[in-house]
Simulated assay, not measured.
Amino acid sequence: MLIDIIAGARPNFMKIAPIIASIRDAMEAGNDISFRLIHTGQHYDKKMSGDFFEQLGIPEPEINLGAGGGTQAEQTASIMVGYEKLLLENRSSLCLVVGDVTSTMACAITAQKLHVKVAHVEAGIRSGDWTMPEEINRMVTDSITNYFFTTTEIANESLRRTGVTDDRIFFVGNTMIDTLLKNRAKFIKPNIWTDLNLNEQKYIVMTLHRPANVDEEGKLKKLIHEIIDNSEDLPLIFPVHPRTAKMLEGLGISHDRLHMIEPLGYLEFNYLVERAKAVVTDSGGITEETTVMGIPCMTLRDNTERPETITIGTNELLGTDPRSIKPAMTKLFSGEWKKGAIPELWDGKTADRIVQHLLKIKA
């Protein structure tokens, strides 16, 4: 069985690394399974892509579709054209997509139209917010998926409500956490740690990239100033996403505690997260990592596709109103932030469970 593993953007890489390792183990054990890694080229900035392959031990992709930048429609079209050509020349047994980026949806559609079955890792998660491109990607992908690998029982219920039968749902856990636990002892101290003489629990990590937060200059400025004004005397470490960097160019935001730096590699970034007082973010994946590492997390979004990080973990959903930051910071600094726990099956063995199911599927 030849499986296409699709990777297109930074969030995918942490999810595919343990799957590749588990497939290799199954191959060495003599099982009829193999893979080819397909990089769609959706993210092509080295810090947003290349470093992850090196740090996580992901092999060089056999195929790079070179989709590059452009609008959502342009990227989708480019990925579909490239992947269709590949499948017509060399058909695979199964297309395995992960997460909710454009590449996930585009390759799932292309595979199904050529009668190649689709498996979706991280299936069933929903935010309910149709303004998010990722939500559309999730809904479309799950509507044409054959095999659903899920992170929580919440995702299972979401799929059942749409008519997916239990025999196609596989509750396996979270491959992001496989990667986190495998690499936790290998985290790398970034230069900013030494440059600023940082100390554990004595700084806050920030990430912002979603349109609702960064596309309006006035709102972005208010958010950052609220974080600065209510973070006591702690340094704020802000690895800036390329999308956000473009918006910040003309705003002239500066403060002696605000340190805007280039995007970090996976091992460097999580070194900072693991030792932070808290994380302020609008990312989804980071809320999962902070939950497992027990770090307080403030999410600047009005909804989340990962409710378990709130009901079980260390995350709180603040919304996108800058005024929500002050009470959350007050709660943090008063020592009243919840401790949280780790969701079921987020144990570092998810990829092994996925591969065992794939061996039985024989697509």
Rank of each mutant, 00 (worst) to 15 (best):
G30P: 08
S34K: 11
P11M: 01
D32W: 11
I16E: 15
F35W: 04
D32S: 13
M27E: 15
A17K: 00
A7D: 03
A26G: 11
G30S: 00
E28M: 08
K15H: 04
P11I: 00
F35A: 05
I20T: 12
I19K: 06
H39P: 03
R36M: 02
A29G: 02
S22W: 00
Q42G: 05
K46I: 09
D45Y: 06
P18L: 09
D4V: 03
P11Y: 03
I38D: 00
G30N: 02
I3E: 10
I6V: 13
L37R: 01
I20A: 04
D4I: 02
K15R: 12
K47N: 14
H43G: 13
G8K: 03
M27R: 14
A9F: 13
I38M: 03
K46N: 06
S34T: 11
D4E: 11
Q42I: 07
I23F: 12
G8S: 13
Y44S: 09
D45V: 04
I20W: 04
I5E: 00
A7P: 10
I23M: 10
A7G: 15
I23K: 05
I19R: 03
I16C: 10
I38Q: 01
Q42N: 04
D25I: 13
K46C: 00
I16P: 12
D32F: 10
T40L: 10
M14R: 08
G41A: 12
D25K: 15
I16V: 15
P18R: 08
R24K: 12
F35E: 09
A29L: 09
T40H: 11
I5G: 02
M27G: 06
E28V: 05
A29Q: 12
A21Q: 14
I3T: 07
K46P: 14
D25H: 05
I23E: 14
H39D: 10
R36D: 05
M27L: 08
D4P: 09
P18T: 15
R10Q: 06
K47Y: 12
M14E: 09
D45C: 03
F35R: 01
R10P: 02
I3Q: 09
N31Q: 12
A9H: 11
I33H: 03
N31W: 01
Y44A: 06
F13Y: 15
S22N: 04
G30E: 06
K15Y: 05
K46H: 07
H39E: 09
G8R: 04
E28R: 13
R10M: 04
I3C: 13
A29D: 15
N31K: 07
I20V: 13
A26I: 04
G8V: 14
K46G: 09
H43M: 07
D45Q: 06
L37Q: 00
K46M: 07
I33N: 02
N12T: 10
K47V: 10
I3Y: 07
S22T: 09
D45N: 13
